[in-house]
Design a protein around this nucleic acid. Sequence first.
DNA 1: TCTCTAATTTGACACCCATCTATGCAGCAG
DNA 2: CTGCTGCATAGATGGGTGTCAAATTAGAGA
Lengths: 117, 117
Amino acid sequence: MDVSADACCAPLVSQPLNEAETMELAPLFKALADPVRLRLLSLIASHEGGEACVCDLTVPFDLTAPTISHHLKVLKQAGLIESERRGTWVYYWINPEVLARMSALLGPATALTGSPA
Amino acid sequence: MDVSADACCAPLVSQPLNEAETMELAPLFKALADPVRLRLLSLIASHEGGEACVCDLTVPFDLTAPTISHHLKVLKQAGLIESERRGTWVYYWINPEVLARMSALLGPATALTGSPA
DNA sequence: TCTCTAATTTGACACCCATCTATGCAGCAG
DNA sequence: CTGCTGCATAGATGGGTGTCAAATTAGAGA
């Protein structure tokens, strides 16, 4: 369900990823490998209050509601966003830890923290 | 051919990406949305001398040489790696700028540089 | 209860993708 | 030139994916 911390922070360039790590990380990148999902994530993350209702997210696209719902589900299953229903509307917000982990993975080999013990 | 600097550094969370930006960025993430390519990139990036021969890259996988060649082509077309033939062997190395741009995109809204003027 | 709206789920379809085998091309050594 | 090796390309195939229309669930209100 969640991508635990074993594939956490060591940058891609500092040491070779093993097969298990890449099999955990690849779905994260796959979730972002679509223009609509990339924009959805950005819309949610930059939305006032840090969360957005689906009704806000459907408007900017020339896509049907089911399609947006599908992309939101993909992002959620990847762990990039979370959601909650409040009355009539469903709200989505991002999981900043996952984004930070991906950023660190692609980033330069800054201050390589070897795994303790 | 290249992903120019117009989708450079503004983090995903600081402002909504527009459609054009996401259509440039999505192929980058798509190139990383595969365990084999993720591992290939890491193997190349962390290899001694900053470059690796295809012969080094084929060994760690239970895949045929054409498949590895295909994945390298995908990474190259995305602009993540470059290559050169030297005699019998072909060497690959990463394009650190593209990785840095992706890292910045996913990273926190550090030192948001508003557009000048 | 009935109805309206918000959002998701289902099923279908066209398209894309990872992998393989077979083939082709480039360089080195006789 | 001939043969061998490293690597890429071509074609085929099984599985995955983005999209939509139609149906379904969940909540608000009369």
